[in-house]
Design a protein around this nucleic acid. Structure first.
Lengths: 243, 243
DNA sequence: CGATCGCTTGAGCTATCTCAACCGGCGTGG
DNA sequence: CCACGCCGGTTGAGATAGCTCAAGCGATCG
């Protein structure tokens, strides 16, 4: 007896297309259960063919690629509301790995039902495509970040974006939000060395812009941070359907 | 009287789901015409809301973002078979621009029909999502490239990938394939300065690995190129449906 | 108590950047 | 038909952001 989850993005996304009873029935079939995992668990492995897709209900994770050299490129941070495994659902295998950083609660879907979803639930299928387009947009932003910005700009922008997402998700209390990653994770996401990341963080901390210690991000001067990140107010974060 | 185009990826993609008569009828409605544009034409403008979506039948283009600093991040090269404007179709506006480098022939679709496609043609909708997932995969690869590879590795890998795509598209004659871009375009794609790109190209040319002059890419030593690109044979390019 | 992990800091090195000049080809206008 | 200007490519030289190596420190854990 599986209940459809209230917070699944497939349900939340279509602001202008609420679920009918029939849809709720369908989503009940589509959903196969809920999953709780411990920190460090690998949810998806690059090259594997996961039979399941997930929606993050709670917790934080990391999406990354492992290079032949053994280095790691973090693609992005996985927060509640994110969809995990679209590639596995649509392609033959995953092209990146996903790992739980904290304990996570996931809504589990059966990959095999995906085609049925396209057939019977065009609105949800549309949502999925929308998710993929957003994902593409974010990767494009990150690409521009790595391609053209200095170390301090990359870090500042990463913090602005994370803070914005945190606000949208209600994770921010005062100026603080939990960000339980290692400096190495940030370095791998931004294409910087650990040492340089560390020194840049120190600089930002000592100039009173942001501090990130003990897994807590504290934004002390948001405007200044945006300035360093070369962001003006005209570039808001996309967090909800734009359609 | 518009004829559905034989080479549209929406048709080609579903290798295992050929079109029925009814589907052909539908695609005929969906398609609104063909478009020929001159080199330099901007097909999509960042921030705009294009009423049309395209499929590339012929010619080459460039997908890029413009940063606040005025710099440009090339996201990827647009080749025949690519779909252009999914973001505009699904989101409120484009997050990047698309420009024709050579003359291009495009298959034009009406954005407003997109929802009807999801409703009536789940197989094509599935194809669209597949396209988006592939796109995401490529951006992830590029991210890893910019994040963790040296200048010469980036250039070598870009050439390998382009060559592979060229082979898949039948653009390669002997060792040559047309690549009518400027060094500045490559530099903007790889996050390198023009000067450094130029010097690295010279080095690759003089060591007899690849030459790229007069808009022609000539791969002289593919194995060596792959080696420099830190690619082994186990990382083939994804050019067709993996499902 | 020793080992491991994440963070910190110093020092030297270099890949890459910026600035700047020059060159050849091509299109345009006189 | 010539001259000029522009564009893309090429090359040199000096500056530096960021890298690597290496060592040390505190906390946590078995």
């Amino acid at each position: 007896m599986v209940t459809p989850c209230r917070d699944c993005p497939l349900r939340k996304l279509s602001l202008f297309a609420p679920m009918s009873d029939r849809e709720v029935d369908f989503m009940q079939d589509f959903k196969t259960g809920e999953l709780k995992v411990d920190p460090g668990t690998t949810l998806m492995l690059e090259g594997s063919n996961s039979p399941q897709l997930y929606t993050v209900l709670d917790g934080m994770g990391l999406r990354y690629k492992t290079l032949l050299s053994g280095k790691r490129q973090v693609l992005n941070i996985v927060l509640p509301g994110d969809f995990v495994g679209l590639q596995a659902g649509v392609m033959k295998e995953m092209q990146h790995s996903v790992e739980a950083t904290t304990a996570m609660t996931l809504c589990v879907f059966d990959r095999k039902s995906l085609w049925a979803l396209f057939r019977d639930q065009p609105e949800r299928a549309y949502d999925l495509t929308w998710i993929a387009a957003i994902e593409e947009h974010f990767l494009g932003e990150t690409l521009a970040l790595l391609g053209h910005m200095s170390g301090i700009e990359r870090i500042a922008r990463a913090f602005v974006r994370l803070h914005d997402r945190g606000v949208a998700l209600g994770l921010v209390a005062g100026a603080d939000m939990p960000l339980p990653y290692r400096q190495q994770d940030l370095a791998d996401a931004l294409g910087l060395s650990l040492v340089h990341t560390n020194k840049t963080l120190k600089h930002l901390r000592e100039t009173g812009v942001v501090s990130w210690v003990h897994g807590t991000l504290r934004v002390l001067d948001y405007d200044r941070l945006c300035e360093i990140a070369a962001l003006d107010e005209a570039s808001p974060l996309v967090t909800r359907p734009l359609i």
